[in-house]
């Protein structure tokens, strides 16, 4: 089931509980206990996942990625927003209350 959320740089997201994540060869692999699916988040996706371990606004996730990787701001923003939307669609992340 897909949900439609309008994400902005100010949206605060956090991980949904019930996932077991593990680092495998530099990439983050995760089991969702609720739906029994395994996911490969990759290296950049793994860092995005780590960045929302506690509720964080999208702009701080983008900043974290730009600190770790050689990437222009515009591309980082677009990719992080897209990836977070996928996490929401799979019910792996949730929009948190504003801090």
């Amino acid at each position: 089931m897909s949900t439609t959320n309008i994400l902005s740089l100010d949206t605060v997201l956090t991980q949904q509980p019930g996932n077991i994540a593990s680092d495998m060869d530099g990439e983050k692999v995760m089991l969702n206990v609720k739906n029994g699916k395994y996911y490969n988040l990759g290296e950049v996706g793994g860092e995005i996942w780590t960045a929302i371990a506690t509720p964080a606004p999208v702009r701080s996730v983008v900043a974290a990625i730009m600190q770790l990787f050689e990437v222009p701001a515009e591309l980082a923003e677009r990719d992080v927003l897209s990836f977070l939307q996928h996490l929401l669609d799979e019910d792996l992340a949730a929009i948190a209350d504003q801090p």
Partner: peptide, 16 residues
């Protein structure tokens, strides 16, 4: 030293 960037993708693995 920053790491090389690649567009993140959420891959669903075919393991049930």
């Amino acid at each position: 030293m920053k790491k090389e960037y690649s567009t993140p993708a959420l891959e669903v693995l075919d393991i049930k």
